[in-house]
Amino acid sequence: MTDTIRLTPPLSDEDTAGLKAGDRVLISGVLYTARDSAHKRLIELLDSGKELPFDIKGQLIYYVGPTPPKPGQVIGSAGPTTSGRMDIFAPRLFDLGLKGTIGKGQRSPEVIDSLEKNNAVYLAAVGGAAALIAKSIKKAEVIAYEDLGPEAIRRLEVEDFPAIVVNDAHGGDLFKAGVEKYRKKAS
């Protein structure tokens, strides 16, 4: 079993190049959240030649739509959402220097190619482990699209946010390798 690797965005090419599918990572520092509607708006900004609401270079985007915080909470429950819905948007953002995304479930071949091309990675957090993950989020601030509610873009400060490398920058794919390893062939 591999040791846990610590990551602190912004990530460099070396940081991502060193990650392998199946590695466990703990992230500390800043994460940006975005899901369906926020992605749609980000891409519309790019299409009209405008700047993104945050500097995306070296950053990680976490696909999440948290529950509303209770009084006194930093954030509500905040586990990953299905990444596949963001497949049509992701390559554009990797081309601009985004270094990785965090979600759950598999990515399209186009996203996987884009990871290799841009030396970026796809990480998974444990879907449904939303109360546990929320404990690693120390600060949350809406930085764009407040009207989208849970889908607004938030800047999170996290400490030891747990994730697993699914697609590395070298074509490694945990889903393929893992399932192949445990699939029982029909006798």
């Binding site: 529950t67 509500g76 429950s77 905040a78 586990g79 959402t81 939303a130 109360a131 546990l132």
Partner: peptide, 15 residues
């Protein structure tokens, strides 16, 4: 996770 959720009276999943 579900232990934390139950103890903290917090949703186990954000969805």
């Amino acid at each position: 996770n579900y232990k934390i959720a139950e103890a903290g009276d917090q949703p186990m999943c954000q969805d």
